[in-house]
Design a protein around this nucleic acid. Structure first.
Lengths: 233, 233
DNA sequence: ACCTGAGTTTGCCTTTTCGCAAAAACCGTC
DNA sequence: GACGGTTTTTGCGAAAAGGCAAACTCAGGT
């Protein structure tokens, strides 16, 4: 792979590196390497030793956990600017999940061993990382609350609204989720089955809330979807 | 409240303060104050401004989130040695949940504003904190996976086994969960209703897996419970 | 233009879990 | 030692969601 010179601007705007000096940014970049991952390929797999951590520059990934009996759960989606695979920073030796590109993606990779020296060099990075992980923890609690207290339809509505936030692209028809996503994926995000997701969304389609095609979801009326997500009925 | 002199030994063994120097520990302690909270009282409430963070010395707390329509979800239980209420470290201004003592409890409290200076003084603390939050994130993902893929009985079994880990006390009859806990609590930990928990546990009682009384749970056969928790049937 | 396979929809029946209601058991206390 | 408020159990019917099976749709390759 040809090793182009990496530029500071690549990582300056990542929240985790925010308010680091140019000097520190250069130091961070000096141990980074770029990597391209094609649609459908994995960046790392559940159980592998965590030898690297990453930042996504372009594209989109999904992070999934597989249960012993083969069921899958989508842990989260990774958007450009996010860091991921930081298992080692939490003192795990292996990755607890698998990261799969859902479109062709470009990322930076660092050796896990670099983490400690980064922190030592710039303590603000530690606090940024803590915030990042803290945000994920809160997102996880939100999902636990939804799974515990809401019925399927509201959970799917919430999941869709979250996707709109993370990957919505305005079009004249409504807001398009900007990467390919299947009913199965949505089911794995909400703890239900693709059949039930299909039934729910067919119902919404009839009401004009969404439109969908194979691997595409278009939210036509985010407001009504929001009402539906909040109303306990 | 009489302000006894606080001793290093109080916090030396907390995982978050691990491998800090005596000097740093003293500095940390100098801004701490002790607080006693009676059974049933709250330490802080969801939505309040997070002016302090805490470490539990004695007792036990539950952390609960309340939904808009009044349903409750138990986020986690706090055991002696845990820190909690670190919303501010994740750059939240308010507490996302309520902490309630389930037995009379004793804790240390620090002003939230101290967090930054602690980190500055001892970067290892930042890494410890990151690990702590990372562990919680993984626990949360475990719960999401269970809520998404397991039926009620297995979820309750997992929850009980987790309680055994966190608060189990060996007796000659089996392992006793060492604080008062109701069916309602267990329901709020597993995303079900107290009725269903009661039915499940009555069934187990008949099989000799557990014994229970009002607000008490005794696990008589942890091994069988474990098998039940893992077997998809 | 036709095949092929992945993705989606749908009908029907079963199972799980809930909700409601009432009774029963238990603890602290007056 | 009776009383009152929690906590727990249990029965019964209802609702939500799942599982199975089959048909359908559509994009992409040959």
């Amino acid at each position: 792979m040809p090793q182009r010179k990496l530029d500071r601007s690549l990582i300056r705007d990542l929240s985790i590196f925010r308010s680091m000096t140019d000097e520190d940014l250069d130091a961070v970049l000096s141990t980074a390497s770029a990597r391209q991952v094609a649609d459908g390929k994995t960046v790392f797999e559940q159980g592998q030793t965590a030898t690297e951590f990453f930042a996504l520059l372009h594209g989109r990934l999904k992070v999934v956990q597989t249960t012993v009996d083969g069921q899958q759960v989508v842990v989260r989606h990774v958007s450009p600017g996010d860091i991921f695979g930081i298992a080692r920073a939490m003192r795990r030796t292996d990755f607890p999940a698998t990261a799969i590109a859902v479109v062709d993606s470009l990322m930076l990779a660092w050796p896990s061993s670099q983490w400690e020296s980064f922190i030592a060099r710039s303590p603000v990075l530690a606090m940024n990382a803590l915030q990042t992980v803290g945000q994920r923890l809160q997102d996880a609690h939100t999902r636990i609350r939804e799974l515990s207290t809401e019925e399927v339809e509201r959970r799917v509505a919430h999941a869709l609204l979250r996707l709109v936030q993370q990957a919505g692209r305005k079009t004249d028809e409504g807001i398009l989720i900007d990467f390919p996503i299947t009913r199965q994926d949505i089911a794995e995000m909400t703890g239900t089955t693709l059949h039930t997701v299909s039934r729910v969304m067919t119902g919404w389609e009839a009401k004009g809330l969404v439109a969908s095609a194979r691997k595409k979801v278009l939210v036509k009326d985010a407001h009504k979807l929001h009402v539906l997500a909040e109303k306990p009925e």
